[in-house]
């Protein structure tokens, strides 16, 4: 409402339009479209194998799309494109740093490839080292770094050259809680600077905390897209109920599905996840039905609608594996 006109009409930094990518018989990305405005953080939330990395690889010009089109800062992206790559900073899911080089050398190397030179480069390298909390470890070879330090450097290389679009592919996987928090904070700071951020994750808390808008991706398709509140409305206020225990046979799921207020049932080996309307009033019925069908219950948990319930609502499966 109160946004200045210039910001509101600023052209999108990224436009993804109907992108398709196949690997043999598998369609890893199946007609994905979305866009990101300057200063906006967009989350791609989806489980393993959803197609997040494939989508990002196409956006970063590492992979060719079989159909569709990606535009970065108004320029058409592709594996042979050079100009649009100036505007992106990629933080790959797997570490992408040279173990024999120091943190400073890693940053300077990629900075030079991005066209930075001289004191502009060395000042920025020092600044990013400071930002990453790596200033005192700038000189040693990165093969001696801890996992968290490598992750932080991996991110630093991506944002060194002030890209207009920063792409982060699950940057917190396998990171201790402290480094994770540091990473999340630095991403929050970036969008304040006006950088557009594309952030993939399968942690809904990260998506909820960081992202202005979220796209839920599964099996290569965007299932839904919007702000957190937009997405929560999709579940029509159904709560998530988790039943933990054992002896979770198909008859348990079937019995629960037959209940009128139960919308979805996803069975894991030690856990049942359900979407239940008006859960507090219905949970007793749910529990008795489950044990009557043979389940040995050890715990019950009700949570307010969250992105997890949205994912369950959309796909019939729990987000967590």
């Amino acid at each position: 409402m109160s946004q200045p006109a210039a910001v509101r009409s600023a052209p999108d930094v990224l436009v993804v339009d109907g992108v398709v990518r196949r690997f043999g018989d598998l369609t890893a990305v199946d007609g994905v479209s979305f866009h990101i405005a300057p200063g906006e953080t967009y989350g791609l939330l989806g489980p393993n194998g959803a197609g997040k990395t494939t989508t990002i690889s196409i956006i970063a010009g590492l992979l060719a799309a079989d159909a569709g089109e990606v535009t970065v800062a108004g320029e058409r992206m592709g594996p042979q494109a050079v100009a649009p790559k100036r505007h992106i900073g990629l933080v790959p899911q797997d570490l992408a740093i040279y173990p024999e080089l120091s943190a400073r050398e890693n940053l300077a190397f990629f900075g030079r490839l991005q066209g930075m030179r001289g004191s502009a480069l060395s000042d920025r390298v020092a600044e990013v080292l400071e930002l990453l909390g790596l200033s005192d470890r700038a000189k040693g070879p990165t093969k001696e770094f801890s996992g968290g330090m490598k992750r932080r450097l991996n991110i630093g290389i991506g944002l060194l050259h002030h890209p207009r679009l920063l792409i982060l592919d699950e940057p917190t996987v396998g990171v201790d809680p402290q480094s994770r928090n540091a990473i999340l904070e630095s991403v929050e700071a970036l969008s304040v600077e006006g950088m557009a951020v594309l952030y993939t994750t399968h942690y809904m808390e990260e998506a909820e905390r960081l992202c202005d808008r979220i796209g839920i991706i599964d099996s290569g398709t965007l299932q839904a897209e919007g702000t957190r509140d937009d997405l929560l409305r999709l579940t029509a206020e159904a709560d998530t109920v988790r039943l933990s225990g054992s002896a979770i046979g198909p008859e348990v799921s079937a019995a629960l599905r037959a209940l009128p207020h139960v919308e979805r049932v996803d069975a894991g080996p030690h856990e049942l996840t359900l979407l239940v309307h008006d859960a507090p009033a219905r949970v007793a019925e749910v529990v008795t039905t489950a044990s009557a069908a043979g389940m040995a219950l050890t715990g019950v948990e009700i949570s307010r609608p969250d992105l997890e319930s949205v994912f369950l609502h959309l796909t019939g499966r729990a987000l967590r594996d």
């Binding site: 970063a60 010009g61 790559k85 100036r86 992106i88 570490l95 740093i97 490839l113 991005q114």
Partner: peptide, 10 residues
């Protein structure tokens, strides 16, 4: 993993 990063360079 640096090959992917190199290929994202301009």
């Amino acid at each position: 993993g640096t090959l992917a990063r190199l290929r994202s360079m301009p």
